[in-house]
Amino acid sequence: MASVNTARGRSDRVDATGPSRVARLGRLAGAYFALTKPQVIELLLVTTIPAMFLAGRAIPSPWLMLATLAGGTMAAGSANALNCVIDADIDKVMNRTRRRPLVRDSVPRRNAAVFGIALGAASFAMLYLTVNLLAAVLAVTTILFYIFVYTLVLKRRTAQNVVWGGAAGCMPVVIGWAAVTGTVQWPAFVMFGVIFFWTPPHTWALAMKYREDYERAGVPMLPVVATEEHVARQIVVYSWVMVGWTLLLVPATSWLYAGFALVAGAWFLFYAHRLHGEVKRGAKTKPMALFHRSNTYLMVVFCALAIDSAIGMPALGLPL
């Protein structure tokens, strides 16, 4: 009887400690997941799939899409995790980033660095083995650019940080194109340009909202070093260039994409000009409204690319 009770007691202790261990493991896994900045990755993937559709003017192989998205996700997660390691001091003083894992000591900094490097290596292996060498090399190049050019050089030194550093966020469309074709052709560069010119209005709208955060952290985002009117005017300029740039894809697409690009562009320009007008009048502004609309705009344009390609609409001009 005593042995039965002893065994039961041990079982109770296991049951009592089991859930807490599971909970701790769950929190730890969640912290590592948060290091990858999944919301940022989601937007990047939205652009990768349409680029693959356009590259073949058809629906790509499901396996190729899955492999490319998996490799691309690991590459983006690697860059974001390493960015968290380097910018831990900035994240501590910004209200917007104070809940990130390294600020809350949820993950040791050394472990986060190893995790980021391991993800980068895994992304190269995944893309090389399941897609092609070009896609793998482009993914690693993107990680290195984001860390060494944007995070370590540009971010804390120039108000043009997101203009040039944003090139890293443009690479998923090039990787997607390369995954399908094994090459990089002119439509891939045009899609790159769409996201390149989209990045400043998108990021500066966010920075207008969190200007004090960036100022406190010593990051010279444009809204920190320039007047609100200058920032709003730059948003309008880049928005016009972005919308015009989307039309460069018309020769490789059909009237369907062209129609969506024009309507979505007019819609976004209306709100960019409205923000500029509010700033000029000294009225209360809502830059986050433009920030969220920029996400919607990009999604609409690239979804139109995917639909146009999937249904096999004849291209209007230049062959791919």
Rank of each mutant, 00 (worst) to 15 (best):
Y297I: 04
R156G: 09
L138M: 11
E278L: 14
R216G: 01
S106A: 15
A112L: 03
H292T: 09
A217E: 00
V190Y: 02
A76D: 01
L298V: 05
R99N: 13
P287L: 08
V22N: 05
T97H: 10
T73M: 11
S20Q: 12
W240S: 03
G120C: 03
P108Y: 02
R13L: 15
V301Q: 00
L262C: 07
Q185K: 08
A70M: 10
H230E: 09
R100S: 07
Y271F: 14
L249Y: 01
T6F: 08
T253D: 07
S3M: 12
P201F: 04
L222H: 00
R211V: 10
V85Y: 07
H202K: 10
V14H: 13
A272L: 07
R24D: 12
R10E: 15
L45I: 12
V231D: 00
A315Y: 06
T36W: 01
M1Q: 09
T296K: 11
I86F: 03
P108Q: 02
K155N: 13
V194D: 02
P220E: 01
M126I: 04
R100V: 06
D12N: 15
V180K: 00
M242Q: 12
G265Q: 02
R57H: 14
L316D: 10
R104V: 15
M208T: 00
W267M: 14
H292E: 06
L133W: 02
R10Q: 14
R8F: 08
T199S: 11
D15I: 15
A168C: 04
T6K: 12
T97K: 13
N95C: 09
V162I: 15
W255E: 13
I90D: 06
M221V: 04
T151K: 12
L316W: 08
I307Q: 05
